[in-house]
Design a protein around this nucleic acid. Structure first.
Length: 706
DNA sequence: GAGTTATGTTTTTTT
DNA sequence: AACATAACTC
């Protein structure tokens, strides 16, 4: 196998296949390339069976990319390699051995909302005031304990205060409710495999024998459970290759511990360490800025990133007047880039918090620049979608009380608090699930619906089942007869969901309900299913990790935003913010803009923020300052180039937007139209007569035969 | 039990 | 500022 396109360190990391190996890979040092080449090398040169290789990443995006790259090198045999996220790998194990853990085959996975609902429900039952005890806090305490391998029993040792005592009680009930509902939360996906392996050493050995070669990406982001899981499985052959960069550890909020990477040498005897310090991604100027920033952190291994790349253009710092000016500036620069022939796909706008995307989005809209927002509006979080999924989950697992409670009265069928209370009492007395407690009354109608759907589910395709759920439940009929804009949007969203199930079927052939539910439980972002159009990417710095773009804008570099207000009092937290900033900067290949707004209105109140300390840490010579005045002269934001003055609209009109598709006009205010779009786009304000808006939809709504 | 109004909360980041 | 949940009324 030809490894000539690798440098010496990369080559060494590729061919050192036996024994524990730590690859400290700086940003842009060809980490993914090493991982994928290494997999290819194992198979082609070492004749390792593809099924013996386990590669684990953190995000679906990363797993997907690795798969694609490996398939490119190896062809179809690459599909036998187990490449998955930690959570999907955990699910794989649980699905093979659910019975040994006491679960039934048709268990459901509760998302974070569902588990919060469960905490709230338990608190209500315990008569705990949610004013005094914040359910979210409690839910996150439970979660971090589970991620540290501490169950409710283990937690008891740490109970000191009255508050701890309450948490302990809720924790116990939470575990019990999950188990009784034959359901798992996200943390269980990591935790249960460990529980299983401790209980059944022989089973563990099977996995140890199966996965002779293990690769872990982003090792700095592993938490306790993940650390133990990989240590256990690799314990036999010890062929574990971990790749990471402690300077990019940004997930401490979910228990990630960058010390796992710092301690690798101690934990794995005879570990080899390889440093990848040569950066292939960024220009010298961008790298200088990154180095300026990260050197202020104390907790790190010494690494010295360097590059052969050209110096490139200077990193620009723009101080905007306010968040709108910031957005205008970005839009203006992007327009220039596009005019120069640069593709939208090569441009990204990064921010610290999702809340910042809105104002940017509005500016992009008005300038008619195509964009996509990654991960902000979760399609699956919409009420109608969650309701539909809850139906599917109950069909799959009727004793899942949380999902049952969500939909037992959706659409309204006269089942209220009183009925639920009676059901709960009956369930408690007879040790039954709510579903099994239904024997008569209005609620039997609901049960009959579910029973009918359950009896038919195996004879229908997924899409047919979805249609039947919408019909039999009455959800579709209710929305159709409502005849409001909101209802139409909901119908559109359901239609979009149907597109997803169809896509699924086209790609995977006949897919069972079970398969589908597990998949969407772990992939919450609808974007992941779609082919991306050419568009500028808007996303948080967290979601940008592992990605790269030619031209990058980092906005909101202000004290209180980035670093985030919650981190300002703690040195550890500030260091994490700094790592996050380092991640952001090192996403850029060619050009980078750092932007802060002096005045920012967020959630209704206005703040005057100082520029981020991270900007202050950059040597002056590495920055080019742009002045605020320029923007007002040069931006053509308010001119009417794109406006067709003769266009006439009235509320209720159907319109079709080049980027957002079908929508209704819901308001007109002077020259500004308020339009409700479907899917993830929601409500937008747009200029009347803008060329991207056309009247009518071109065809009629799908209402009748969704 | 359903619909309306009032209140409160969110906004750090993800599987 | 926007949205979701809780409280209140019919």
């Amino acid at each position: 196998m030809n490894l000539d396109n690798l440098n010496e360190q990369q080559k060494k990391a590729t061919i050192t296949t036996e024994g524990p190996l730590l690859v400290l890979a700086g940003a842009g040092s060809g980490k993914t390339k090493v991982l994928t080449t290494r997999i290819a090398y194992l198979i082609k040169e070492k004749k390792v069976n593809p099924g013996s290789i386990l590669a684990i990443t953190f995000t679906n995006k990363a797993a997907k990319e690795m798969k694609e790259r490996v398939v490119n090198i190896l062809g179809q045999s690459a599909h036998e390699i187990q490449i998955s996220t930690f959570h999907s790998f955990g699910l794989l194990i649980i699905r093979e051995h659910y019975d040994k853990l006491g679960y039934k085959r048709n268990f459901t996975i509760l998302d974070s909302d569902d588990s919060l609902t469960m905490v709230k429900k338990i608190m209500r039952e315990l008569n705990l005031d949610t004013q005094i005890y914040n359910p979210k806090t409690i839910r996150s305490i439970i979660s971090s304990n589970k991620n540290a391998m501490i169950d409710s029993k283990g937690y008891e040792k740490f109970v000191y205060t009255e508050f701890d005592k309450k948490v302990f009680e809720i924790f116990k009930k939470y575990e019990k409710s999950l188990f009784e509902g034959n359901s798992l939360d996200f943390d269980d996906l990591l935790l249960l495999p460990l529980v299983l392996f401790k209980k059944e050493p022989l089973l563990l050995e099977q996995y140890q024998l199966k996965y002779k070669y293990i690769l872990i990406d982003e090792y700095q982001d592993t938490n306790e459970v993940q650390y133990l899981l990989t240590k256990m499985i690799s314990d036999k052959y010890k062929n574990i290759c971990v790749v990471g960069d402690e300077s990019q550890s940004i997930y401490s909020f979910r228990g990630a511990n960058y010390r796992n990477i710092l301690n690798f040498e101690k934990d794995y005897k005879n570990a080899e360490i390889i440093l990848l310090e040569k950066n292939y991604r960024s220009t010298q100027n961008i790298l200088n800025v990154a180095n300026n920033i990260i050197k202020n952190n104390t907790q790190k291994k010494d690494k010295n990133l360097w590059t052969d790349n050209e110096a490139g253009s200077k990193v620009v710092h723009y101080q905007a007047y306010n968040e709108k000016d910031e957005a205008l500036y970005v839009v203006e620069k992007i327009t220039n880039l596009i005019d120069k022939g640069i593709k939208e796909n090569d441009i990204a706008i990064l921010y610290r918090t999702n809340a910042q995307s809105r104002v940017i989005e509005e500016a992009m809209l008005k300038s008619n620049i195509p964009y996509k927002i990654v991960g902000s509006v979760y399609f699956y979080n919409r009420k109608e979608i969650k309701d539909l999924i809850a139906y599917l989950k109950v069909i799959h697992n009727p004793i899942d009380n949380i999902n049952l409670l969500r939909i037992i009265n959706v659409p309204r069928r006269g089942i209220g608090a009183k009925t639920i209370e009676n059901l709960s009492n009956h369930a408690y007395l007879h040790n039954l699930s709510l579903y099994d407690s239904i024997i008569d009354g209005k609620e039997i109608i609901f049960k009959n619906i579910i029973e009918e759907l359950r009896s038919k589910k195996d004879d229908l395709t997924l899409t047919e089942l979805v249609d039947l759920v919408l019909d039999k439940s009455g959800i579709r009929q209710e929305l159709i007869s409502e005849k409001t804009i909101e209802a139409d949007i909901r119908l559109e969203n359901l239609h979009e969901f149907r597109t997803i199930t169809k896509d699924f079927e086209e790609r995977n052939g006949i897919i069972s309900l079970e398969e589908f539910l597990y998949e969407i439980s772990l992939v919450a972002d609808v974007e992941e299913y779609k082919n991306k159009d050419n568009a500028v990417t808007l996303m948080t710095v967290h979601s940008a990790k592992g990605l790269e773009f030619e031209h990058v804008f980092i906005v909101g570099l202000e004290e209180g935003i980035f670093p985030h207000i919650n981190s300002i009092d703690s040195n550890d937290a500030i260091e994490e913010e700094r790592r996050l900033c380092y991640v952001a900067v090192t996403r850029a290949k060619k050009e980078l803009w750092l932007i802060n707004a002096r005045k920012r209105t967020l959630f209704g109140n206005t703040n005057f923020n100082l520029a981020s300390r991270f900007i202050g840490e950059i040597d002056d010579e590495n920055l080019e300052i742009e002045m605020v005045e320029n923007i007002f002269e040069s931006n053509n934001f308010n001119n009417n180039n794109n406006i067709d003055e003769s266009a006439e609209y009235s509320v209720g009109d159907k319109v079709n937007h080049d980027v957002f598709g079908k929508g209704y006009i819901v308001g007109i205010d002077g020259k500004v139209l308020t339009i409700a779009f479907s899917n993830q786009h929601g409500i937008k304000k747009l200029m009347k007569g803008h060329k991207s808006i056309k009247k009518g939809w071109g065809y009629e709504l799908f209402n009748k035969n969704i």
